[in-house]
Design a protein around this nucleic acid. Structure first.
Lengths: 263, 263
DNA sequence: GAATTCAGTTCCAAATACTGGAACCGACAC
DNA sequence: GTGTCGGTTCCAGTATTTGGAACTGAATTC
């Protein structure tokens, strides 16, 4: 479906290896056979086999004996529910996000940074009745999304260095930043205005206006954006959302602080 | 928040142990300190410490150095997205579920069986605009929910034995089955009608009518229910949903079969 | 302000689990 | 019947994990 996945660094211990395999199953985005995994893997047959077996035992993968296919396991969904409920910004932010979405009449995205990637923890679209949750958990690159850049503009310099390493700078569109330098050039502007734009950098025809969310000690913990299509709003007109967006981001930050949000 | 969690059997290898720890963090449903985990754990201090460290490295947990709290990691959400997208029934069933929800004007739940527990992979409520996804990933006992019993009625006898072991038979309400025998007594009735009822067995005031979903080889892969409150429908009147429910379950099953759904 | 706790972290030799080459198995094809 | 190709199992060598005990540093008591 899409391009180069920046891959996690060190695989410490067996657990790391198992997760690496789990990721590689996830990357296929469909049920996958042993052999397919094998040729894609650095591990020898026997090792991979045992790793898969462990994952299946643990219900992190499921294995259909009839077809020999491996697919993702339901235990992940259970675990993620716990993560979403009490470690993501989403439940705290929910009411504010709803309000913003209703007012704006466009999609609102709530994102956090995970390992140099943007991960969407909530998405709401005022119009569609049902659309939503197919999207939660989706990831996107940080360097070419509004929410991503909004967060990068404010993270600690040493963390920024690490995160920059993890960016692929794959040129999704004409407007995509192609290098760390190019991206770094934009960050001061973002800091000045407190707002980041996605100028069709990730997907042709999609633009967004994003704001960072801060916790009381000054750290960024997430970002919020209003995204829309160039069919309905051009870039300049996106600023109509600016004030609402900033005030919502602020409210979420306050709420998170009073909840002792981890970060 | 609720009662006894039936706990996974064997912890094979390091991966199993790590996941056990991960589960125990999840069970707290809030950020948790090292010590709290320690007293709850069977592992010695040093071991638990290293296990936690590994999980944090792997982004399955996050650790706030200021407060010393551990909480669930965002990587789980990313992984779960993959699981939800291509290993759960939800994306396949979505359109049918929407239709049913719209027609019924009540909540529709789509569930699968994981390790003897019911896990909700989708929930829709026709009325609320936003409610939904806080619920996806939630688990419930199989022995006292409509969807759970609908599935139990059709799984292979040897698998049923295992699953029965995993039930706690905790008496949530007056109507809850208190033993395997009691539960087994109901299953033939379910098989005759192709429909299972939740008669306020899990929660006072909540009732549901549920139907199993079969794949072409005859195996149950999930269940679908319409749930409502006794304020609006009493048990008998729930049967108004029967035909729609059965036909939707059937459509989902067909669709899943043609997609070579794992199971 | 020295003495005592206590949470959290590090050490290290012993115990254990993981590794991967090679051999094996069963199904299908030729 | 023989060959090939997924997939699974064996087993000795090796790398990881283990956990008692000792350490650190911050907070609490005396």
């Amino acid at each position: 479906m899409n391009s180069p996945l920046p891959h996690t660094g060190k695989a410490d211990g067996t657990v790391g290896k198992a997760l690496e395999v789990l990721d590689s199953v996830a990357a296929f985005e469909r049920p996958v056979k042993f052999t397919e995994l094998l040729e894609q893997s650095t591990y020898p047959k026997a090792t991979l086999y045992r790793l898969l077996q462990t994952l299946v035992n643990q219900n992190l993968l499921s294995h259909d004996p009839e077809t020999g296919n491996y697919s993702m396991g339901l235990r992940l969904i259970r675990l993620a529910h716990a993560a979403w409920e009490n470690a993501s910004l989403a439940p705290i932010a929910r009411p504010f996000v709803e309000e913003l979405a209703a007012g704006a009449g466009e999609s609102v995205h709530l994102a956090q940074l995970d390992n140099g990637q943007v991960i969407f923890v909530d998405k709401l679209k005022a119009t569609d009745r049902f659309e939503t949750l197919a999207q939660v958990g989706k990831v996107a690159p940080a360097y070419c999304t509004g929410v991503g850049k909004a967060m990068l503009a404010y993270i600690a310099p040493k963390r920024l260095d690490i995160v920059l390493q993890q960016q692929s700078f794959f040129p999704y569109t004409q407007a995509t930043h192609r290098s760390a330098e190019s991206l770094l050039g934009e960050l001061p502007t973002i800091r000045e205005s407190g707002i980041a734009f996605d100028r069709e950098e990730h997907e042709e025809g999609i633009v967004s206006i994003a704001a960072p969310i801060f916790i009381s000690n000054g750290r960024v913990i997430g970002a919020l954006s209003v995204a829309t299509s160039t069919m309905r709003y051009d870039l300049d007109r996106l600023t109509v959302f600016r004030d609402e967006l900033l005030s919502t981001a602020d409210k979420i930050g306050r709420q998170a602080s009073s909840w002792h949000f981890p970060g």
